[in-house]
Structures are given as structure tokens and as C-alpha cells.
């Protein structure tokens, strides 16, 4: 399941499934629709605390959303990635999108 919350200009998307081709499509469709309806959103925060697996479909979906939010001069940040997921994101050159310090999972 995909959980979304907005705080001002920030949209927080929390994922809790393996980010493969199925969840990547779900994530992409949901976020794109939401962004389209909410032009005030400038920061897309993707919380991966409950994601233990990501493959190139998941990486592609994140990059696609990064491109979309950049088009409106916004930014994307990935929070709470596990060591395993973080390693794959770094291999794919997405290190700059990772939160520098692993934040504690926010209590929402």
C-alpha cells in the first residue's frame, strides 16, 4: 500500500512493498495524478522505511518522479532507506536524492 500525506508544499509518500514493476507502476500513477491536481506541491518526500527490495523498475519510477517535480522547480528527497536499498540507489547514481543522515521514521 501507498500512503500519502501533504504538509504545506511537501508531499510525503510512504511505500511498504517491494518496489518492483507492480509497485513502481502504482507509485508512478498515484503520485503523478496527485501532483497534477496539487500544483502547490514543491517537495516530494519518498519514505522507504518499509521497503526492503528495489529493482530497476522501482529506480525508474523514482527518477521519473524526480524529473516531474524538477519541471516545477521542486525537489525530491528519499528518506529512511534501508542499507540494502540505499546501496542500490547509490549504484544507480541517486545518492544526491538520499537524505544525508538517516532520519528517524517520523511519527505521523
Amino acid at each position: 500500500m501507498l500512503n500519502m500525506q501533504t504538509v504545506g508544499e511537501t508531499m510525503i509518500v510512504s511505500l511498504d512493498r517491494d518496489l518492483d514493476m507492480v509497485e513502481a507502476k502504482n507509485f508512478k500513477d498515484t503520485v503523478d495524478t496527485f501532483l497534477l491536481l496539487n500544483p502547490q506541491i514543491k517537495i516530494l518526500q519518498i519514505d522507504l522505511a518499509d521497503v526492503s527490495f528495489i529493482d530497476s523498475s522501482g529506480l525508474g519510477a523514482i527518477i521519473g518522479r524526480y524529473k516531474n517535480i524538477s519541471l516545477r522547480q521542486g525537489s525530491l528527497v528519499i528518506t529512511n532507506a534501508s542499507d540494502n536499498v540505499r546501496r542500490i540507489l547509490e549504484m544507480a547514481g541517486l545518492k544526491k536524492l538520499l537524505e544525508t543522515k538517516k532520519a528517524k521514521k517520523e511519527v505521523l
Partner: peptide, 21 residues
């Protein structure tokens, strides 16, 4: 190790996704 298992799962995931997509 967890990372080794993850690597094998990713390799398989990529090949199977390619076949499907």
C-alpha cells in the same frame, strides 16, 4: 549475507520483468 541474497533477487527480478514487459 542479506546483500548477496538481495543481489540474486534483483538479477532474477530484472530478467523476469524483461520477459514480461
Amino acid at each position: 549475507s542479506l546483500s548477496a541474497l538481495d543481489e540474486l533477487k534483483i538479477a532474477l527480478s530484472e530478467a523476469v520483468s524483461n520477459s514480461i514487459i
